[in-house]
Amino acid sequence: SPEVQIAILTEQINNLNEHLRVHKKDHHSRRGLLKMVGKRRRLLAYLRNKDVARYREIVEKLG
């Protein structure tokens, strides 16, 4: 489901952010981070168009 995919991506994004705080010059990982953020944004847009209630619920849960 989109909610699960968004939750997994959010966790991976948070982990990668911590990694990049330590390894500032790791541009390869930064590119992966940007791809993940874009994918999460697309999934959220899809969910917002399909079911606003589910969209609001996941945004509330994940912050």
Rank of each mutant, 00 (worst) to 15 (best):
L47A: 00
I13L: 02
K24G: 13
D26N: 04
G63F: 15
V4G: 06
P2W: 14
A45Y: 05
L62F: 06
Q5E: 10
Y55H: 03
L44Y: 02
Q5L: 15
I58N: 00
I58C: 06
G32I: 15
R48K: 13
L9S: 01
R56H: 12
I6V: 04
R40D: 00
H28I: 11
L34S: 07
R31L: 13
L20F: 06
R54A: 12
L9A: 01
M36K: 06
L33M: 08
S1H: 09
N14E: 06
Y46F: 09
R21F: 03
L44E: 00
H28G: 10
K24T: 12
Y46H: 10
L9R: 01
Y46M: 12
R54L: 14
E11C: 13
R31G: 06
G38Q: 13
H27S: 08
V37Y: 14
V37W: 09
H23V: 04
A53K: 13
K24D: 09
R21Q: 07
G32D: 14
R21P: 01
K61R: 08
L16A: 05
K61F: 09
G63L: 15
Y46K: 10
L43M: 04
R42K: 12
L16F: 06
D51N: 08
R41L: 11
N17K: 15
R31I: 11
T10A: 02
Y55F: 08
L9Q: 01
Q12H: 12
A53F: 08
E11R: 09
N17M: 15
A45S: 08
L47S: 00
L62H: 03
D51C: 05
G38H: 13
M36Y: 06
K25S: 13
I13T: 00
N14S: 05
K25E: 14
R21A: 07
R41A: 12
A45L: 11
D51F: 03
L34N: 07
L34F: 09
R40E: 01
S29Y: 05
E11D: 07
E11M: 12
R31T: 09
H19E: 04
Q5M: 11
H27Q: 11
E11I: 12
N17L: 15
K25Y: 12
S29T: 08
L43Q: 01
I8D: 05
R48D: 00
M36N: 02
Y46A: 11
G32S: 15
H27M: 12
L43K: 01
L62K: 02
E3S: 04
Q12I: 13
L16W: 06
I13K: 01
N14W: 06
L62E: 01
G63C: 15
K35Y: 10
E3D: 05
S29R: 07
V37Q: 07
Y55A: 02
L43V: 02
A45K: 10
M36D: 01
S29N: 06
K39L: 14
A45N: 10
L34Y: 10
N49L: 14
V22D: 10
K35F: 09
R40W: 06
E18C: 12
R48M: 07
A45T: 08
N15I: 13
Y46E: 15
H19S: 04
V37G: 01
R31E: 08
E11P: 01
R42W: 08
I13P: 00
T10G: 02
I6L: 04
E3G: 03
I8M: 11
N17H: 13
I13R: 00
H23I: 03
G63R: 14
D26P: 04
K50F: 14
R41P: 00
L33W: 06
I6Q: 00
E57N: 06
V22M: 10
V59A: 04
I8L: 12
V59S: 03
N17Y: 15
R54H: 05
E57P: 00
L9W: 04
E11W: 10
L43N: 00
M36L: 15
A45H: 09
V4F: 10
L47C: 02
E18A: 11
G63A: 14
Q5C: 10
G32H: 15
L20N: 02
A45F: 06
H28D: 13
Y46P: 00
L16M: 08
T10L: 05
E60D: 07
A7N: 07
R30I: 12
V52A: 12
R31C: 11
D26H: 11
K50N: 12
K24H: 10
H23Y: 06
L20C: 05
I6D: 00
V52P: 15
L33T: 01
E57D: 08
D26C: 07
S29G: 10
R56Y: 12
L44I: 03
R40N: 01
A53L: 12
G38E: 15
K25I: 07
Y46N: 09
L34R: 10
L47D: 00
R31V: 10
E11Y: 08
H28V: 14
L16K: 02
H19D: 03
R21D: 04
Q5F: 07
N17A: 14
R48G: 02
I6K: 00
R48N: 02
V52G: 09
A7D: 05
I13N: 01
R42V: 08
V22E: 08
V59K: 04
N17F: 15
Y55K: 01
L44G: 00
R40L: 13
L33C: 08
E18T: 06
H27G: 07
A7H: 10
H23E: 03
K35L: 13
A53G: 10
K39P: 00
K50H: 14
V37L: 14
R41H: 08
E18R: 10
L43R: 00
